[in-house]
């Protein structure tokens, strides 16, 4: 069966509609409470992990860019691992931003539901947009990221539940070999990225049919050391097929070094 992901700026309504949909479909639920399990699994500070899910790196909040990317990568890895199981309704974990290309995942955006937006809401929306662009290079409010956008100022929540639960039953949202393989590849790429981000930075990972391509940048003099480290760490990840490392020179650091 399929996977259903909800997202909304109104967390109360998001949770209510997601839970009712899961109950109606007989699906399991996966939500922000899972963050505590993730914190335990990866030995992370739970409060900092919750902070990383809503804000961008900041020296003031003692959240470095390296730490922030690693924390988000832990969430992505753990969530994708769970989504492989199917029959899940998920919300509050930003999952819609990293399963965009998986066809058996129905992505639903809920808007409105609390009257006209206040100044606080606008500020929250701006913060959310900043977060999603920094983390996943996507504007969370962009309707093109979703299969369904429901305006809760115009549609009642029980009608929204009916719409979503009937839509997820369309054949186009059925899992198929292609979509399962895509999700498996995403999960593998996330696992490799997570292992690498524990110690390294500037890491991009892509997987296709079990073949993993890691792209990285560094100073020329660090190339051999960094490529060897990537091969050693990634090679130990379970499920790894063939590994390829693409290296590019870090022009900015190289130029800065040249001016010293």
């Amino acid at each position: 069966m399929s996977v259903l992901i909800f997202t909304s700026d109104n967390q109360e309504l998001e949770e209510k509609i997601a839970r009712q949909s899961a109950e109606k479909l007989g699906y399991k639920t996966l939500n922000h409470r899972f963050l505590d399990d993730i914190a335990r699994q990866y030995s992370l500070d739970s409060a900092k992990l919750r902070e990383a899910m809503i804000t961008t790196p900041s020296i003031l909040k003692r959240m470095s860019s390296k730490m922030w990317h690693y924390y988000l990568s832990c969430v992505e890895t753990a969530v994708l691992d769970r989504l492989l199981e199917d029959d899940i309704v998920c919300w509050g974990l930003g999952a819609h931003l990293y399963v965009l290309v998986v066809s058996h995942v129905l992505k639903v955006r809920l808007v409105g539901g609390d009257g006209s937006a206040s100044m606080t809401d606008t500020k929250k929306e701006r913060q959310r947009e900043k977060w999603s662009v920094a983390a996943w290079q996507r504007r969370e409010a962009d309707p093109r990221l979703y299969d369904l956008v429901i305006n809760l100022d115009q549609i009642k929540s029980d009608e929204a539940v009916n719409t979503v639960t009937s839509t997820v039953g369309y054949p186009r949202f059925k899992p198929m070999t292609y979509s399962r393989n895509t999700l498996t590849d995403r999960a593998l790429a996330a696992k490799v990225k997570n292992a690498l981000l524990e110690t390294l930075t500037n890491i991009h990972v892509h997987a296709q049919n079990g073949t993993v391509v890691v792209t990285t940048t560094s100073l020329k003099r660090e190339k051999a050391k960094k490529v060897a480290a990537i091969k050693e760490i990634a090679g130990k990840v379970e499920g790894m097929g063939y590994l390829e490392v693409h290296w590019n020179v870090d022009m900015v650091s190289e130029a800065a070094l040249g001016h010293r």
Partner: peptide, 14 residues
């Protein structure tokens, strides 16, 4: 992939 499934394909492989 979604269009193929909607039109009645049993499965879709890349």
């Amino acid at each position: 992939a979604r269009d193929a499934m909607e039109q009645g394909a049993f499965d879709f492989i890349a």
